[in-house]
């Protein structure tokens, strides 16, 4: 795996590292920090479409697509690794099992997108917010960045609102509702899970879509 990395670099928080439409010859692996995929709207707003934790490829899909229909940005100071597409090409020929693992990764991205689609289309603001907190608890937990009852989540309320498709003021009111119901608290960039079973239940959160126990590839 390490042999695939051509270069690692540190990137400051809130830098767009991949712009929609630009020609790409390498995929970006997130080694440390948090990143997001987002789409800009013409009216100046944006929608975040997925969050990335260390170990995620921000754009394994650019290997086949060669350009993206979205942007990729760092949310915190990050360390990223660049994997040239020609090395991935060779790897698919010499290490088919690794290739299948990467395919699994892009399928997992699609599953996460489907869940966000359900959230944006069908969950109310409070449930949607709860579902995202549950998802990030599981995903950050997998890479050792969460405790049983909480995790550091260094997003601003504006960024979190951009994930959820609501305005920051609406989010603030929603967070108050969740806090007063004794479910979850988001303060000082930390998520405290006050009652995880009830939070999961109100969000209708089922971690099956994260495929935590895949068959051997």
């Amino acid at each position: 795996m390490r042999g695939l990395l051509a270069d690692t670099r540190s990137v400051e928080a809130r830098r767009t590292v991949i712009r929609e439409g630009e020609r790409l010859e390498a995929s970006t692996l997130l080694l440390d920090g948090l990143m997001c995929r987002y789409k800009d709207l013409r009216n100046g707003q944006r929608q975040v479409t997925e969050l990335h934790v260390p170990g995620d490829f921000a754009d394994m899909h650019s290997f086949t697509l060669k350009r993206l229909d979205h942007n990729v940005q760092t949310l915190t100071d990050c360390v990223i690794g660049l994997v040239p597409h020609e090395r991935i090409q060779r790897m698919t020929e010499t290490h088919p099992r690794l290739a299948r693992l990467y395919w699994f990764g892009t399928n997992l991205d699609a599953a996460i997108h489907r869940e966000w689609e359900v959230s944006l289309g069908k969950r109310w603001a409070a449930e949607r917010t709860a579902a995202l907190f549950c998802e990030m608890h599981v995903r950050l937990g997998l890479v050792g960045m969460a405790d049983p009852d909480g995790y550091g989540f260094p997003l601003t309320q504006t960024e979190l609102a951009e994930c959820l498709g609501i305005t920051p003021i609406h989010l603030n009111r929603t967070l108050k509702e969740l806090r007063e119901a004794g479910l979850v608290e988001f303060r000082s960039r930390y998520v405290s899970l006050l009652d995880l079973p009830r939070l999961r239940s109100m969000a209708d959160f089922d971690e099956n879509y994260l495929y935590l126990d895949p068959d051997p590839l």
């Binding site: 601003t156 309320q157 504006t158 609501i166 305005t167 920051p168 003021i169 609406h170 603030n172 009111r173 108050k176 509702e177 007063e180």
Partner: peptide, 29 residues
């Protein structure tokens, strides 16, 4: 629900734009 205090704030070019943000949020709520 009573008062929901905004601790973080948002940048906006002027008061008119700030009012637009408030209106948009009220509609969303």
């Amino acid at each position: 629900l009573g008062l929901t205090k905004d601790e973080e704030g948002q940048a906006a070019p002027d008061e008119g734009a700030a009012r637009d943000l408030a209106i948009e949020s009220i509609r969303s709520l």
